[in-house]
Structures are given as structure tokens and as C-alpha cells.
Simulated scan of single mutants.
Amino acid sequence: MPTGVALRDPREQLFDAAERILLRDGPNALTSRAVTTEAGCAKGVLHRHFTNFDAFLADLVLDRIGRLDAQSAALRDAAGTGTVADNVTGALSDLFGSVAVAIVGLVISRDALRTRLRRTTPTGIPLLTEATAMFTSYLTAERDLGRITPDADVDTLARTLIGAGHLLAAGRPDTPPETEAFHRVATTVLAGVTQERPAG
């Protein structure tokens, strides 16, 4: 194994290596040695960029949470277009068809990591909490547009969508759910609160 491979973007390459390990072998296989071996770099590279392995893991999770910003903006921009159920289906499929389930498993399995992440996500499960906020924001926009009933509890709807989506995707990294499965979740959760008019 080479010990002096130059990395163009060491942080991102280490994060990508950690994701591959998570998806292939699960959170228990994630060690600093496993990450640097997977990235094909010297063992000291990780510790030159992060104070310790817990800091690396926390930054990995925070980086992946940060990636929700673009998805959240796109979902909010979709308000008033298509159907609410289709927009929610696409967002659930994007969220849980990615590495998000593995990241949540990592957070749940490591007490020290959860404690560290409490600085930015005081309650709930990091990543899922931020994803819930993404759906709350979108559903609020749809309610403001009159496509969801005025009395709809968008916070509870968002939590229900995230919980059902996570349960649907958990434990199956090699075979993510079909889009139709997420569509059934969306239509069931939103039944009775949508009042859509044909898009103009």
C-alpha cells in the first residue's frame, strides 16, 4: 500500500472513502486505518486534517448535512408545480437512495459522535432532523399556495414522511426501495390534506 499518495482534495477523498466503507461493511468497520487504506493514502493524512477520528466523523456527517441545502432549495422551488405527492416522492427517493441511511446508522451507533453533533443538532437524529426541516419548509410553502389544507400540521406530516421513508430504506444498502414504494408513503401520509388544482 503506498504511503505517500498525493490527494487533490484530502478531506473529500477521505469522506468518500468513509462512505464506501459504510455502505459496504457498516459503521463498525469504520476506523481511521480503514479510511486511509480505502483512500489509498498515508495513515497520517487523516490526522493532519482532523484533530482525531471523532472530529473526522463529525465533519463527515456535517458535510453530508450541508449537502441537503441544495436539495432543500430545489424542493422548495418545486412548490406549486407538479403534484405534492410526486415532489415528496422525488425528495424521499433522493434522500434515502443515497448514503443518508448509512450516515444515520453511523450516528446511532456511536455515542461520542452523537454527543459531538449535539452542538449543531441539539435534538433528534442528525441528518434526519435537518431532512425533516426540509420537508416542513416545502409543505409550508405548499400550504401557503393553497395546495395543502390550511389546518394541516406540516411538522407532523414531515416527521411522518421522514420516519416512514427511513424505515422503508433501512437495512437494504444494496437494494434501495423502488420509487413506487416512496410514492405509496407520500400518498398515504398526505391523504386528506392535499387540495391541488391543476398546474397552470
Rank of each mutant, 00 (worst) to 15 (best):
G124Q: 06
T89N: 08
L30H: 01
T81A: 14
A17K: 14
T83V: 11
R8Y: 13
Q71E: 13
C41S: 15
G4E: 14
P176R: 04
T188N: 12
H47W: 09
D111Y: 02
V101T: 07
R33M: 02
A70Q: 14
G26F: 07
T81M: 00
E12Q: 14
D54N: 06
T89F: 02
V61D: 02
G192Q: 13
D63T: 12
D9K: 08
A112R: 09
A78L: 06
A133F: 00
G146I: 09
L190M: 10
A79M: 11
T120D: 09
L92T: 15
P177H: 05
A79F: 03
R172W: 06
Y138R: 04
H49P: 04
C41R: 02
A85M: 06
K43F: 12
P198F: 12
L14A: 02
A74M: 10
P176C: 09
T3C: 01
D54H: 10
A131V: 04
L117G: 07
E142I: 13
T121L: 02
D144L: 08
D144F: 03
E38C: 11
D94P: 01
V185D: 09
I65H: 01
F135P: 08
L190Y: 07
V99E: 02
T3V: 11
E180G: 05
R116P: 04
L161W: 08
A74N: 15
R48S: 14
E142K: 00
G97N: 11
F53N: 12
L57T: 12
E130Y: 05
T3S: 15
L113H: 08
D86Q: 09
A141N: 07
G90A: 10
H183K: 03
T149K: 01
D174Q: 13
T132P: 00
D153I: 04
L117D: 10
G26E: 07
P176E: 05
V154S: 02
T89M: 00
P27W: 09
L168P: 03
V61R: 01
M1H: 08
T37K: 04
P150D: 15
R118P: 13
I162R: 02
Q195F: 03
D25L: 14
M134Y: 03
R20D: 15
I125S: 00
R20Q: 14
P177M: 06
E130C: 04
T179F: 13
A73D: 15
N87G: 12
T3A: 03
G192E: 03
P150K: 08
L57K: 12
S32F: 07
L168S: 08
L23T: 09
F182E: 01
L46Q: 09
T120Y: 01
G80I: 13
G200P: 15
P2V: 10
R33G: 06
L14D: 02
M134G: 03
A18T: 13
A191R: 13
T31A: 11
A79S: 10
R159K: 09
F15Q: 06
A158D: 00
T136A: 09
N87D: 15
G163H: 10
V35H: 03
L22I: 00
E12F: 06
